[in-house]
Write a protein that binds this DNA or RNA. Sequence first.
DNA 1: CATGAATGAGGCTTCATTCAT
DNA 2: AATGAATGAAGCCTCATTCAT
Lengths: 188, 188, 188, 188
Amino acid sequence: MASAEQPLRADARRNRDRILVAARDAFAEAGFAVPLDDIAARAGVGPGTVYRHFPTKEALFQAVITARVTDLVTAARQHADAPDPGAAFFAFLTHLGAEGATKRDTSDAMTVPGPLLADLHDAVATLLARAQDAGAVRPGVTVDDLLTFLKSLFTAVHDGPDPGRAERLFTVLIDGLRPPQAPPAATP
Amino acid sequence: MASAEQPLRADARRNRDRILVAARDAFAEAGFAVPLDDIAARAGVGPGTVYRHFPTKEALFQAVITARVTDLVTAARQHADAPDPGAAFFAFLTHLGAEGATKRDTSDAMTVPGPLLADLHDAVATLLARAQDAGAVRPGVTVDDLLTFLKSLFTAVHDGPDPGRAERLFTVLIDGLRPPQAPPAATP
Amino acid sequence: MASAEQPLRADARRNRDRILVAARDAFAEAGFAVPLDDIAARAGVGPGTVYRHFPTKEALFQAVITARVTDLVTAARQHADAPDPGAAFFAFLTHLGAEGATKRDTSDAMTVPGPLLADLHDAVATLLARAQDAGAVRPGVTVDDLLTFLKSLFTAVHDGPDPGRAERLFTVLIDGLRPPQAPPAATP
Amino acid sequence: MASAEQPLRADARRNRDRILVAARDAFAEAGFAVPLDDIAARAGVGPGTVYRHFPTKEALFQAVITARVTDLVTAARQHADAPDPGAAFFAFLTHLGAEGATKRDTSDAMTVPGPLLADLHDAVATLLARAQDAGAVRPGVTVDDLLTFLKSLFTAVHDGPDPGRAERLFTVLIDGLRPPQAPPAATP
DNA sequence: CATGAATGAGGCTTCATTCAT
DNA sequence: AATGAATGAAGCCTCATTCAT
């Protein structure tokens, strides 16, 4: 019995990978509006070849970020095991920060609709809720808030060349997420 | 040859204004991708009339954005007069947050190249520097950090439907921007 | 109050007509598969102009035959007034035969779906039913049968150059439509 | 160089046959527009294999049609043996009607150029001439009249869903083909 | 020989821009 | 000066055909 996911022929596999790489770069540079023909040209294939692998431009876009989302979900679930809820949450956040600072399409990955995003959402929700229950993160903030903030942060980081920006903005986020401090009581 | 700055005829002036308003609304709702014919229809003019006033769709977009930046610069300068540097900075930030939450093209406004953007940059730089000097904002964060991040935050906020998100995220941002609290001193 | 159907500008009217003529010819020659760009070229306009007048290739096709169907319906209704049901039916049929022999797209007109075709259908149904009730046309034959037969006949006539074919086939149809004759009784 | 007529290897022969069957079915169902990949899939082979056997989609189509014409010619010749010329002619016509009602590409079969069509033409001409000579079919009608009309009739019949239509129309055709009845003599 | 991946011309449609009215 | 019709370059996608495996 052959496996349901029979391996692609060598040439097809190679082209599929080249298309995905080209698409990742092209989408990162020019957004979804980039012509599919350009992606094909970048990959060194004809547009028809792209359609052999992905039925739609939208499907290609989805495929580009699916891999990334899968990784994020895995990371989130791993951190869920940590004993200290606050530490677990911030550790995952740090991991996410490192990912986002390095890989341009992380922010896209956090936006695409579909079941995978729901998985990510749920995994982060668990981390966040536990951290909030433990008083380590300010209440009110939702998972979507958090993901939106991060997405923006990643976009911003990739907008300019300043290498320190990621760290500075990330510090702002982390401190902003902590529960509000009572103003220091004036001690006599 | 007519003078370069001759005042427009009354009807032309009126049309120009209606086009700008229509364009602002249309861009705010549908982004740059909105067909120019739709903008013309909104303004109640033919597409040819739009081209009489703006040589290009891009130029029209810039014109819309320019008005927005001008407003932002004005606001920044007004806040610069406030006595408390920290309050002034955060008040402007709040104003900016309200603008960005309401108008979809605020983020575009923060990207437009040209001297106006430099003005915005400078005005915000002044506010920020004074606030940092006064110890009201954590050091290290730069104007570019802030503007770049806000730009993408506005974009992200507009992608989702939750109207409270902008406010929650701004709270996080503001608290994150405050100087880090010394960890509670171990009291003997 | 302006009329609901404000007249087109002269140039638009001219182009619309040219497009309709070109489309009629092109569809007649090459069927629906003819590229829309070819139709545009025949009409001496750009493809975009075709789309200004007809939202879809399908819509253009419909428009081409609408005019023809309208004429047919009118004729059918006029013949409905004749006193002798059989004569009325065959007179209309003869008219239809002449039309179909002359104008290449008559057969298309009898196939396109839509409200107009229903009108034609109804008008012919009336004629046919009355003729059948009067014993002038064999029972069992339906309107669709008749229209299908005619459509085929027209197509056949236009397939070849033989000028007498239309008349010969038409005679076959008419005689075939009459009620079956009892075989001549063998008279002693 | 191998001989032009060398017998195919067993597997190649089998594939060729499967392709022809698949093509016949596919063309019958969806017309010439059916994608060649669909035909290949139906036959359980790759598209490349189809091209090993037929240089062109058009060639494959012709091959399918040729088989059909061969059958028709055979039938016509068989009916030519019948003793009663009128009965022979109408029997063949009935057979043709059944074929055309069942198989969508019968009408195409009647169009294919080449010597085979001439054979069909001749065989039917013989039947028709004998029937006309015997007074069983009205004079004047030619083989081309008949074949051309039948061709388009089959096309039309297949466009509609009414399965009884073909039979009703064939009755009309057959009765219309019979010699005209003398109008009932006015009996004193 | 078979396979099925790749090619790329071409189809329909949209829309920024130009131009006759 | 305004109008809105026309233009035509892309954009997405399909599919007949070729070619590496």
